[in-house]
Computed example of a mutant assay.
Amino acid sequence: MKILITGGSGMVGRNILAHENVADFEFLNPTSAVLNLLSFSEVDEYIKNNTPDLIIHAAGKVGGIHANMADPVGFLVDNLDMGRNVILAAKKNRVAKLLNLGSSCMYPRDAANPLNEDLILKGELEPTNEGYALAKVVAARLCAYISQEDNYFAYKTIIPCNLFGAYDKFSPKNSHMLPAVIRKIHEAKENQLGTIDIWGDGLARREFMHAEDLANFIFFAIDNFEKMPQNLNVGLGYDYTINEYYKAIADVIGYTGDFVHDLSKPVGMKQKLIDVTRLSEFGWKHALSMKEGIEKTYDFYKNNILKDEL
């Protein structure tokens, strides 16, 4: 099977391409210099010339609360354009299968947890990442519409919980929470800081899955594509508080200082736990614990990010 993956240089894409099963397929992994996903004509031409059997759309403009609040236009427009270009060019060129990566931020901010797949568009989105969420909702709906109009096309969306892991960004300004906290606590230990600040009261709950687990799911989904639901949550089915993540990361790194809460900072949704009932029925479950995932990610940070910065 020939598979085109967009976003192959991002965290999700690189974990997929590092998976042991990757040799069983022919993967097309064009860089942004080769294929500009913001140009429909370029995407159309690339797909026409390379004739993939399946497309995995994992590309996107991503970031944490700080980045989303600083650039809502970019997060909306860039992700919207990438999604529609890839999906519509796939349809135009009669690519039968497409796996679209959504996000749990597609769910309404006030929806009852755990969040099941039928709650999309059932309420107001979280304002701190609304632009990104809107783009992801549109792409998911577009996949569903295409599949409904013509059953030749199986265009499906997975909705992962928050992710972290190898190849993540570890910048304080544009990374997600866990890699940013890993860097913050590592530097606090190195600099012998007695305290670390936590945005808000630390009681908001988050579900973080290691990207290696998501890569495992992707290959399971490829092998079981026909029976996969139209929209499918992919996550753990349980969550932890921000305070618990800080404590777990501090334990792995060996930091023994104190945490101070900055109540002036935004915290986003109070909880964002996805329902994994359909995922369990599909026959898949994650393998890594929170501690194992943090240890793997910290090892990657020390052995790759820090070495490159020295």
Rank of each mutant, 00 (worst) to 15 (best):
T128Q: 15
P172W: 01
Q230Y: 11
P72K: 07
T241Y: 08
A139R: 02
I16K: 02
N21L: 14
F208L: 05
G268L: 02
S32V: 12
A18R: 11
A188K: 04
A133E: 07
V86H: 01
I274Y: 06
L80G: 06
A67L: 09
I146H: 06
V138W: 12
A154E: 12
S280G: 14
Y245E: 00
L263M: 11
L288C: 10
I65G: 08
Y255V: 01
R206E: 09
L125Y: 00
G200H: 00
R278F: 15
I120F: 06
V181I: 13
N21A: 11
Y145M: 13
L142I: 14
V234W: 00
I158D: 02
L310H: 11
R109P: 05
G202S: 07
M290N: 08
H286S: 15
N129R: 13
T256K: 15
D71K: 01
G131W: 00
G131Y: 02
Y152C: 08
I47A: 03
M269L: 11
S103V: 09
P179L: 03
L37K: 03
F220A: 09
L99Y: 01
I159D: 05
L54T: 05
C143Y: 03
Y145I: 13
I198R: 02
P229A: 09
F300G: 03
K122Q: 13
A23I: 08
P30K: 07
A250T: 00
A23Y: 14
I253P: 00
Y298Q: 04
G293T: 05
E187T: 11
G165Y: 00
A133I: 06
